[in-house]
Design a protein around this nucleic acid. Sequence first.
DNA 1: ATGAAAGCGCTAACAT
DNA 2: ATGTTAGCGCTTTCAT
Lengths: 347, 347
Amino acid sequence: MTLSDPPPPRRSLTLRDVSEASGVSEMTVSRVLRGSADVSAKTRARVLAAAKQMGYVPNKIAGGLASQRVNLVGVIIPSLSNMVFPEVLSGINEVLEATPLQAVVGLSRYDPPHEERVLYEMLSWRPSGLIVAGLEHSEASRAMLRAADIPVVEIMDLDGEPVDSVVGISHRRAGADMARAIAAAGYRRIGFLGTKMPMDHRARKRFEGFTGALAREGIEVTDHEFYSGGSGLAKGREMTRAILERNPDLDFLYYSNDMIAAGGLLYCLGEGIDVPGRMGLAGFNGIELLDGLPLRPATIDIRRREIGRKAAEIIADCVQRGLASAHARIALDPVLDPGDTLRKPPA
Amino acid sequence: MTLSDPPPPRRSLTLRDVSEASGVSEMTVSRVLRGSADVSAKTRARVLAAAKQMGYVPNKIAGGLASQRVNLVGVIIPSLSNMVFPEVLSGINEVLEATPLQAVVGLSRYDPPHEERVLYEMLSWRPSGLIVAGLEHSEASRAMLRAADIPVVEIMDLDGEPVDSVVGISHRRAGADMARAIAAAGYRRIGFLGTKMPMDHRARKRFEGFTGALAREGIEVTDHEFYSGGSGLAKGREMTRAILERNPDLDFLYYSNDMIAAGGLLYCLGEGIDVPGRMGLAGFNGIELLDGLPLRPATIDIRRREIGRKAAEIIADCVQRGLASAHARIALDPVLDPGDTLRKPPA
DNA sequence: ATGAAAGCGCTAACAT
DNA sequence: ATGTTAGCGCTTTCAT
């Protein structure tokens, strides 16, 4: 022993350490730690005491390799900055917390090649299931999803061909529902304000459903205003100012989400525009955070938390029953709330 | 071969499969897939082609076990419903995307025993580093953090004793800064509206800093209004109505976050209260989403994204240099923005 | 109720 | 530049 013995590379504790400390075989220690029934109470107590005293933390990497089972559920969503996705995650977590499963989140950024990389990363952890936002993926991604041999749930959208299971609402229908409500309320000169849609398929489908249904009423969208980048009240204000400057005679503004709708509403009220008499507004998502505005904007609740819950339930069920797919299709109804901004007062 | 051969349990492809398909040893396949330099271009191409053709996805569980390195960074935050945390995560992701590291998120729900369980789960994956919100943890959690022998960064808060590194702002100072600004602007009858604080140490520290600094000016907080549950505009409205009903002569309302401050602002404006003349307001966090209100509420930016970036940089640096700790302390300055609601107009 | 042996799919370390 | 061997820390399977 010299003065300069290099410190041994500190390795974390193993089952073997607990085994030695408790005088019980590794195998039995493993049984105790996983809660197997076939262990005597005395042995169990001894092992548990030793493990706790040492601060032993099981190694799931080793466990996963040995058992060929990893209790991870991959979740791929476009981003966290759009409030809908954290809410979907909450729903997923609520369900998974009652199971041994644990969600791992990856962000696709509305970018299929990036999604492909994230998916590849996820699959390399051999998760027990996968929840992916949207139905549009690169061919390579779809191939990976099919080949993974695990339950896959695509969420948020129903309009398309799922790989396995799907939980969501029809955005075409949501758009059409809103269009009909707007037409029925008597509005005729309608402006659309929303994201640039190449990136966002669900926004595009809503828009298609919207214009389709309007067309059946003999109405066309009068003008559009598109944006990219984050949504916020300020963005809604700017866009509203811009579109109204071009088209002062619009009588309805349809926004692709509630946040920019709220900005638009504040703009209109600030300009002294009579809402909903002179001008109606509607958003999308059903964000509760925004209850408390001077008027409640019309919106459609896309049932974010329920989508998360249902998707997680499908995965949990498959895992428990040892199935590699469920082929479930859960169609939730989009719920239109006219709020205070979608009704012309009786003339 | 009978008609009822049970389907072989489908196992996913292994290095060995790629090795056989490409006629190259497993070891060399492994080298190619990890981008080692010592492989001939021809071999590399052959292996890559085979792997791609078969749809091989490496198994990180096995790789992690063999190499004793797992490129995961655990991140433990209280929740996703408070917008600040998704923003911190974005900062973390921005930095980690340029490294082989990958964040895994766990939610502590502002509940130390729950945090302890989440931490235990995280550590069982043997992550390369850990980022944890806050400085207050159960003794067992602190013991696990110390014993983990990996870099740990506690974020958001500076006021306390970190286990290893810390990145954040001083909430005591943020509270005191706002108190001084309010006093300097001439407000005197001040109400506080915020979360029930046993759960939220940072809110408590802000409140302590706030009342302490006010006391030095000879001012006391006139009344409080506490809430639990999610924040939203509606909550801010209700609380504001309640506190003003009890204390119609308050001249300033200090909210524990921007969302309820915005609700309060809308309430005041709706009631025709002159802001900031008759009544000043301030929130906390510096949420950009809310730019676009009729008036910009005073707030303090806690530099969420930077906190995430710095924390991730510390971890990435330690991992790269093989260090198990950094003992860094990064103090960011809270930035007070008086907005439009923290100045009495010249009388 | 407990233990012994084998091996999960990969990589470190050492050949060649 | 490529191959061989020996594990990583668990769990599975089979004995006892």
